[in-house]
Protein backbone atom coordinates (compact mmCIF):
# COMPACT_ATOMS: atom_id res chain seq x y z
CA UNK A 1 0.00 0.00 0.00
CA UNK A 2 2.70 2.46 0.92
CA UNK A 3 4.70 1.36 -2.06
CA UNK A 4 1.80 2.08 -4.43
CA UNK A 5 1.41 5.54 -2.94
CA UNK A 6 5.08 6.25 -3.49
CA UNK A 7 4.81 5.40 -7.19
CA UNK A 8 1.73 7.62 -7.43
CA UNK A 9 3.76 10.54 -6.17
CA UNK A 10 6.58 10.04 -8.66
CA UNK A 11 4.24 10.15 -11.65
CA UNK A 12 4.14 13.66 -13.23
CA UNK A 13 0.76 15.34 -13.17
CA UNK A 14 -1.04 15.56 -16.54
CA UNK A 15 -3.33 18.42 -15.67
CA UNK A 16 -2.83 22.14 -15.49
CA UNK A 17 0.59 22.48 -17.07
CA UNK A 18 -0.38 25.09 -19.69
CA UNK A 19 1.10 28.53 -19.26
CA UNK A 20 1.99 31.41 -21.55
CA UNK A 21 5.63 30.35 -21.64
CA UNK A 22 5.02 26.61 -21.89
CA UNK A 23 3.79 26.69 -25.52
CA UNK A 24 4.85 29.96 -27.19
CA UNK A 25 3.37 29.03 -30.58
CA UNK A 26 -0.15 28.53 -29.21
CA UNK A 27 0.21 31.75 -27.24
CA UNK A 28 1.22 33.59 -30.43
CA UNK A 29 -1.72 32.39 -32.55
CA UNK A 30 -4.26 32.94 -29.75
CA UNK A 31 -2.78 36.36 -29.09
CA UNK A 32 -3.03 37.31 -32.77
CA UNK A 33 -6.64 36.18 -32.90
CA UNK A 34 -7.59 38.12 -29.80
CA UNK A 35 -5.72 41.21 -31.02
CA UNK A 36 -7.36 41.28 -34.46
CA UNK A 37 -10.80 40.50 -33.08
CA UNK A 38 -10.28 43.15 -30.43
CA UNK A 39 -9.24 45.73 -33.02
CA UNK A 40 -12.40 45.08 -35.00
CA UNK A 41 -14.59 45.35 -31.91
CA UNK A 42 -12.73 48.49 -30.83
CA UNK A 43 -13.28 50.12 -34.23
CA UNK A 44 -16.97 49.19 -34.19
CA UNK A 45 -17.45 50.41 -30.65
CA UNK A 46 -15.67 53.69 -31.45
CA UNK A 47 -17.99 54.30 -34.42
CA UNK A 48 -21.05 53.66 -32.28
CA UNK A 49 -19.76 55.78 -29.40
CA UNK A 50 -18.62 58.69 -31.61
CA UNK A 51 -21.90 58.73 -33.49
CA UNK A 52 -24.04 58.77 -30.34
CA UNK A 53 -24.71 62.57 -30.49
CA UNK A 54 -26.37 62.31 -33.92
CA UNK A 55 -28.63 59.41 -32.91
CA UNK A 56 -29.73 61.45 -29.87
CA UNK A 57 -30.30 64.51 -32.07
CA UNK A 58 -32.02 62.95 -35.12
CA UNK A 59 -33.10 59.48 -33.99
CA UNK A 60 -33.85 56.94 -36.74
CA UNK A 61 -34.77 59.87 -39.00
CA UNK A 62 -31.03 60.23 -39.62
CA UNK A 63 -31.04 57.11 -41.82
CA UNK A 64 -33.58 58.30 -44.40
CA UNK A 65 -33.89 62.05 -43.77
CA UNK A 66 -33.63 64.01 -47.01
CA UNK A 67 -32.01 67.22 -45.77
CA UNK A 68 -28.36 67.76 -44.87
CA UNK A 69 -27.59 71.37 -43.87
CA UNK A 70 -24.93 71.26 -41.21
CA UNK A 71 -25.02 75.02 -40.55
CA UNK A 72 -28.68 74.58 -39.54
CA UNK A 73 -27.92 71.35 -37.65
CA UNK A 74 -30.09 69.35 -40.09
CA UNK A 75 -28.61 65.93 -40.75
CA UNK A 76 -30.35 63.36 -42.97
CA UNK A 77 -28.35 60.63 -44.70
CA UNK A 78 -31.16 59.68 -47.11
CA UNK A 79 -29.70 61.33 -50.21
CA UNK A 80 -26.31 59.72 -49.64
CA UNK A 81 -27.85 56.33 -48.97
CA UNK A 82 -29.86 56.77 -52.16
CA UNK A 83 -26.71 57.78 -54.06
CA UNK A 84 -24.74 54.80 -52.80
CA UNK A 85 -27.51 52.31 -53.55
CA UNK A 86 -28.23 53.80 -56.99
CA UNK A 87 -24.58 53.82 -58.01
CA UNK A 88 -23.99 50.28 -56.77
CA UNK A 89 -27.20 49.04 -58.44
CA UNK A 90 -26.18 50.48 -61.81
CA UNK A 91 -22.76 48.87 -61.40
CA UNK A 92 -24.15 45.46 -60.48
CA UNK A 93 -26.86 45.47 -63.17
CA UNK A 94 -24.23 46.10 -65.83
CA UNK A 95 -21.25 44.17 -64.48
CA UNK A 96 -22.96 40.95 -63.42
CA UNK A 97 -24.60 39.79 -66.67
CA UNK A 98 -21.56 40.85 -68.68
CA UNK A 99 -19.13 39.38 -66.15
CA UNK A 100 -20.93 36.04 -65.82
CA UNK A 101 -21.21 35.63 -69.59
CA UNK A 102 -17.53 36.48 -69.99
CA UNK A 103 -16.71 33.95 -67.26
CA UNK A 104 -18.76 31.27 -69.07
CA UNK A 105 -16.75 31.97 -72.20
CA UNK A 106 -13.49 31.87 -70.25
CA UNK A 107 -14.32 28.70 -68.36
CA UNK A 108 -16.28 26.64 -70.88
CA UNK A 109 -15.29 27.71 -74.37
CA UNK A 110 -11.73 29.06 -74.41
CA UNK A 111 -8.89 26.56 -74.94
CA UNK A 112 -6.86 25.96 -71.80
CA UNK A 113 -3.75 27.93 -72.75
CA UNK A 114 -5.63 31.01 -73.90
CA UNK A 115 -7.79 30.78 -70.79
CA UNK A 116 -4.75 31.02 -68.56
CA UNK A 117 -3.50 34.11 -70.39
CA UNK A 118 -6.90 35.80 -70.25
CA UNK A 119 -7.24 35.01 -66.57
CA UNK A 120 -3.89 36.68 -65.78
CA UNK A 121 -4.96 39.70 -67.85
CA UNK A 122 -8.32 39.97 -66.07
CA UNK A 123 -6.69 39.66 -62.66
CA UNK A 124 -4.18 42.34 -63.64
CA UNK A 125 -7.14 44.62 -64.44
CA UNK A 126 -8.58 43.87 -61.00
CA UNK A 127 -5.37 45.07 -59.37
CA UNK A 128 -5.25 48.49 -61.10
CA UNK A 129 -5.53 51.16 -58.36
CA UNK A 130 -8.93 52.79 -58.21
CA UNK A 131 -7.58 56.31 -58.66
CA UNK A 132 -6.42 55.26 -62.13
CA UNK A 133 -9.95 54.10 -62.95
CA UNK A 134 -11.20 57.40 -61.50
CA UNK A 135 -9.00 59.44 -63.81
CA UNK A 136 -10.10 57.25 -66.72
CA UNK A 137 -13.65 58.14 -65.73
CA UNK A 138 -12.85 61.86 -65.69
CA UNK A 139 -11.10 61.60 -69.03
CA UNK A 140 -13.53 59.41 -70.98
CA UNK A 141 -16.79 58.66 -69.21
CA UNK A 142 -17.59 62.17 -68.03
CA UNK A 143 -17.41 63.56 -71.57
CA UNK A 144 -19.49 60.74 -72.91
CA UNK A 145 -22.17 60.80 -70.23
CA UNK A 146 -22.33 64.61 -70.38
CA UNK A 147 -23.49 64.38 -73.99
CA UNK A 148 -25.83 61.46 -73.31
CA UNK A 149 -27.76 62.97 -70.36
CA UNK A 150 -28.58 66.31 -72.02
CA UNK A 151 -31.95 65.10 -73.39
CA UNK A 152 -32.90 63.95 -69.86
CA UNK A 153 -32.34 67.35 -68.30
CA UNK A 154 -28.75 66.76 -67.25
CA UNK A 155 -26.29 69.60 -67.46
CA UNK A 156 -22.99 68.00 -66.53
CA UNK A 157 -21.11 64.72 -66.99
CA UNK A 158 -20.58 64.38 -63.23
CA UNK A 159 -23.62 62.26 -62.38
CA UNK A 160 -24.66 59.21 -60.40
CA UNK A 161 -24.85 57.41 -63.77
CA UNK A 162 -21.20 58.22 -64.50
CA UNK A 163 -20.16 56.84 -61.12
CA UNK A 164 -22.28 53.70 -61.68
CA UNK A 165 -20.77 53.10 -65.12
CA UNK A 166 -17.28 53.59 -63.76
CA UNK A 167 -17.95 51.18 -60.90
CA UNK A 168 -19.28 48.63 -63.41
CA UNK A 169 -15.99 48.84 -65.31
CA UNK A 170 -14.09 48.47 -62.04
CA UNK A 171 -16.21 45.57 -60.76
CA UNK A 172 -16.06 43.65 -64.05
CA UNK A 173 -12.62 42.00 -63.62
CA UNK A 174 -13.43 40.76 -60.12
CA UNK A 175 -16.85 39.48 -61.21
CA UNK A 176 -15.30 37.67 -64.18
CA UNK A 177 -12.51 36.00 -62.25
CA UNK A 178 -14.64 34.98 -59.24
CA UNK A 179 -17.45 33.66 -61.46
CA UNK A 180 -14.87 31.77 -63.48
CA UNK A 181 -13.59 30.16 -60.26
CA UNK A 182 -17.17 29.25 -59.34
CA UNK A 183 -17.77 27.65 -62.76
CA UNK A 184 -14.48 25.75 -62.63
CA UNK A 185 -15.57 24.46 -59.22
CA UNK A 186 -18.27 22.34 -60.86
CA UNK A 187 -16.94 18.78 -61.21
CA UNK A 188 -15.64 17.94 -64.68
CA UNK A 189 -17.37 14.51 -64.43
CA UNK A 190 -20.72 16.29 -64.47
CA UNK A 191 -19.87 17.97 -67.78
CA UNK A 192 -18.63 14.71 -69.29
CA UNK A 193 -21.78 12.91 -68.09
CA UNK A 194 -24.01 15.50 -69.80
CA UNK A 195 -22.03 15.39 -73.03
CA UNK A 196 -22.16 11.58 -72.88
CA UNK A 197 -25.96 11.83 -73.09
CA UNK A 198 -25.63 13.66 -76.39
CA UNK A 199 -26.41 17.17 -75.10
CA UNK A 200 -24.57 20.15 -76.57
CA UNK A 201 -22.01 22.33 -74.85
CA UNK A 202 -24.56 25.14 -74.49
CA UNK A 203 -27.07 22.79 -72.83
CA UNK A 204 -24.32 21.56 -70.50
CA UNK A 205 -23.61 25.14 -69.38
CA UNK A 206 -27.28 26.10 -68.97
CA UNK A 207 -28.59 22.90 -67.36
CA UNK A 208 -25.74 21.70 -65.19
CA UNK A 209 -22.81 24.08 -64.82
CA UNK A 210 -24.61 27.38 -64.15
CA UNK A 211 -27.25 25.95 -61.76
CA UNK A 212 -24.55 24.30 -59.66
CA UNK A 213 -22.25 27.31 -59.70
CA UNK A 214 -25.10 29.76 -59.09
CA UNK A 215 -24.78 30.25 -55.29
CA UNK A 216 -21.07 30.96 -55.69
CA UNK A 217 -21.76 33.31 -58.62
CA UNK A 218 -24.30 35.25 -56.55
CA UNK A 219 -21.74 35.26 -53.73
CA UNK A 220 -19.18 36.75 -56.11
CA UNK A 221 -21.77 39.36 -57.09
CA UNK A 222 -22.36 40.32 -53.47
CA UNK A 223 -18.61 40.60 -52.93
CA UNK A 224 -18.47 42.91 -55.94
CA UNK A 225 -21.44 44.87 -54.59
CA UNK A 226 -19.70 45.32 -51.26
CA UNK A 227 -16.63 46.62 -53.06
CA UNK A 228 -18.75 48.96 -55.19
CA UNK A 229 -20.53 50.38 -52.14
CA UNK A 230 -17.23 50.99 -50.38
CA UNK A 231 -15.33 52.41 -53.36
CA UNK A 232 -14.39 56.03 -52.66
CA UNK A 233 -11.85 57.80 -54.78
CA UNK A 234 -13.11 56.81 -58.24
CA UNK A 235 -16.68 57.72 -57.30
CA UNK A 236 -15.48 60.92 -55.65
CA UNK A 237 -13.93 62.08 -58.93
CA UNK A 238 -17.03 61.69 -61.12
CA UNK A 239 -20.16 61.72 -58.95
CA UNK A 240 -20.56 65.50 -58.75
CA UNK A 241 -20.77 65.58 -54.93
CA UNK A 242 -24.00 67.56 -54.71
CA UNK A 243 -25.96 67.26 -51.46
CA UNK A 244 -29.70 66.70 -50.97
CA UNK A 245 -30.31 65.08 -54.34
CA UNK A 246 -33.09 62.82 -53.18
CA UNK A 247 -35.78 62.09 -55.81
CA UNK A 248 -39.39 62.85 -54.93
CA UNK A 249 -40.37 59.26 -55.64
CA UNK A 250 -38.00 56.47 -54.52
CA UNK A 251 -37.96 54.64 -57.84
CA UNK A 252 -37.93 57.61 -60.21
CA UNK A 253 -34.82 57.69 -62.36
CA UNK A 254 -34.54 61.49 -62.74
CA UNK A 255 -31.72 61.83 -60.21
CA UNK A 256 -29.56 59.26 -61.97
CA UNK A 257 -28.79 61.86 -64.64
CA UNK A 258 -27.93 64.52 -62.05
CA UNK A 259 -24.91 65.04 -59.83
CA UNK A 260 -25.30 63.35 -56.47
CA UNK A 261 -23.54 62.29 -53.33
CA UNK A 262 -22.71 58.85 -51.96
CA UNK A 263 -21.79 57.81 -48.42
CA UNK A 264 -18.17 57.40 -49.46
CA UNK A 265 -17.84 60.58 -51.49
CA UNK A 266 -19.23 62.55 -48.53
CA UNK A 267 -16.83 60.91 -46.09
CA UNK A 268 -13.87 61.30 -48.44
CA UNK A 269 -14.59 64.99 -48.99
CA UNK A 270 -13.47 68.10 -47.10
CA UNK A 271 -16.50 68.16 -44.78
CA UNK A 272 -14.91 65.53 -42.53
CA UNK A 273 -12.19 68.04 -41.58
CA UNK A 274 -14.77 70.76 -41.09
CA UNK A 275 -16.78 68.53 -38.76
CA UNK A 276 -13.90 67.66 -36.46
CA UNK A 277 -14.55 70.42 -33.91
CA UNK A 278 -18.31 70.02 -33.58
CA UNK A 279 -19.51 66.87 -31.70
CA UNK A 280 -22.88 66.82 -33.45
CA UNK A 281 -21.50 67.33 -36.98
CA UNK A 282 -18.71 64.83 -36.25
CA UNK A 283 -21.29 62.42 -34.87
CA UNK A 284 -23.22 62.71 -38.15
CA UNK A 285 -20.10 61.84 -40.13
CA UNK A 286 -19.45 58.87 -37.86
CA UNK A 287 -23.08 57.82 -38.31
CA UNK A 288 -22.49 57.73 -42.09
CA UNK A 289 -19.40 55.61 -41.39
CA UNK A 290 -21.42 53.20 -39.32
CA UNK A 291 -24.06 52.83 -42.06
CA UNK A 292 -21.38 52.17 -44.66
CA UNK A 293 -19.65 49.53 -42.54
CA UNK A 294 -22.95 47.82 -41.72
CA UNK A 295 -23.88 47.61 -45.42
CA UNK A 296 -20.50 46.39 -46.67
CA UNK A 297 -20.03 43.88 -43.85
CA UNK A 298 -23.45 42.35 -44.52
CA UNK A 299 -22.62 42.09 -48.23
CA UNK A 300 -19.38 40.32 -47.36
CA UNK A 301 -21.10 38.00 -44.89
CA UNK A 302 -23.77 37.10 -47.45
CA UNK A 303 -21.11 36.48 -50.09
CA UNK A 304 -19.10 34.17 -47.83
CA UNK A 305 -22.25 32.28 -46.86
CA UNK A 306 -23.31 31.74 -50.48
CA UNK A 307 -19.80 30.83 -51.65
CA UNK A 308 -19.55 28.24 -48.89
CA UNK A 309 -22.93 26.85 -49.90
CA UNK A 310 -21.76 26.63 -53.52
CA UNK A 311 -18.64 24.72 -52.53
CA UNK A 312 -20.69 22.36 -50.37
CA UNK A 313 -22.89 21.44 -53.33
CA UNK A 314 -20.14 21.04 -55.88
Amino acid sequence: MTRALAIEKERPSLAGTWSFTHDPWTTLVWGSLILSGGLFLFAGATLVWQSLPIWRHEGWGFLFGGEWFYRHELFGAGAMLYGSVAVAAIAVLLAVPLGVLAAVFLSEYLPRRLRWGMKVLVEALASVPSVVYGLFGVLVLREWVGGAVEPFGGWTGDTLLTAGLLLAVMALPLTVTLSDDALRGVAQEQRVAVRGLGLTRGETVLLVVLPQAWPAVVGATLLGLGRALGETIAVFLVVGRMDNQLPEKWFSLEMIFQPGQTLTSKLGGPETHLAAGDPLHWGAMMGLCLMLVAITVSCLGGARYLQGKGRGRA
Binding site: A187, A193, L197, G198
Partner: peptide
Protein backbone atom coordinates in the same frame (compact mmCIF):
# COMPACT_ATOMS: atom_id res chain seq x y z
CA UNK B 1 -23.51 10.01 -78.40
CA UNK B 2 -27.29 9.63 -78.39
CA UNK B 3 -26.90 6.40 -80.37
CA UNK B 4 -23.84 5.17 -78.45
CA UNK B 5 -24.58 5.66 -74.74
CA UNK B 6 -22.02 5.53 -71.97
CA UNK B 7 -21.81 4.60 -68.29
CA UNK B 8 -18.75 5.72 -66.35
CA UNK B 9 -16.68 4.22 -63.57
CA UNK B 10 -17.96 6.69 -60.99
CA UNK B 11 -21.67 7.49 -61.16
CA UNK B 12 -22.34 11.20 -61.62
CA UNK B 13 -25.99 11.98 -61.06
CA UNK B 14 -27.26 15.54 -61.41
CA UNK B 15 -28.56 17.48 -58.39
Amino acid sequence: RVRIGMVFQQPSVFP
